[in-house]
Design a protein around this nucleic acid. Sequence first.
DNA 1: CCCTTGATGCAATTCAATTGCAATAGTAAT
DNA 2: ATTACTATTGCAATTGAATTGCATCAAGGG
Lengths: 143, 143
Amino acid sequence: MNQDRTAQNWARQSIQAAGLRATSARVATLLVLRDSSAPLTHAEVSDQLAEHEIDKSTVFRNLTDMVTANLLRRSELGDHVWRFEIIGETEREHESHPHFVCIDCGTVSCLQEIQLSNKSKTESSRLGQVTEILLRGHCHDCV
Amino acid sequence: MNQDRTAQNWARQSIQAAGLRATSARVATLLVLRDSSAPLTHAEVSDQLAEHEIDKSTVFRNLTDMVTANLLRRSELGDHVWRFEIIGETEREHESHPHFVCIDCGTVSCLQEIQLSNKSKTESSRLGQVTEILLRGHCHDCV
DNA sequence: CCCTTGATGCAATTCAATTGCAATAGTAAT
DNA sequence: ATTACTATTGCAATTGAATTGCATCAAGGG
């Protein structure tokens, strides 16, 4: 209970800090994702929030709003379903570090510094300006 | 013309070798993908085949059939759209080359070889086995 | 407490993906 | 070349997630 109160305050503050109104639907959404160890699909979040009688279109809009506000990350694991997960406080600042996504469990890991070899840098710069590097594969827990 | 004939024979043989009937729709589909320097979406393939009066559901079924038959690779590059590309003869089916996706116009390009620096390789291998590398950014046309 | 404006619920819509089925066409056998 | 078998096709219809319109509601600054 006290725990819940603390968590709610945290959620409330996070949401407001991101410039959004701290509605009960958003607080509930954020807490669901906070308590999940893996990214959740829109449907999974919706299911969990159904008991709170929150409409799925509201869930959808809130998820995308919070992605825009940089509270959540939306990722695609290769199965054509969007998944959402909390972006940790510490990583929120530098948004452009490389990520490793496990295509089995969906876990997203942040890499400190990924460098391309010089040759690869040359080749990719011919195409454009690279702003994001994403590695996909199987994490050690899933292999 | 002679060129076309040769290409058609190649397509025909590839399809039959994969255990499928070499229908004109499949030959045309395979040639479209063969002549593309980047993976194409189902819609893009369909558009190109519209002049041959091939139905989009046929295109869809053929694409997935050829994926199953290991002639094509279906991949998801983070924008929630399936793309299809030829699996090169020399490529093993589980390996894929890196892609560059323009986050403005959505254009996808294939890269020959992207190498991570040694340090980065070490760091990523700590997390798991990397099977796919994806670069995102702004292509020259969009900057 | 009021007011403004963002957020919500519900219904409706969009759009790609997918399926059912009768007609058609590719292949191997004759 | 003809036949027979069945995979494949075209078309229409369906599915289902994603998305929007709009009237109503509520968060939070003043």
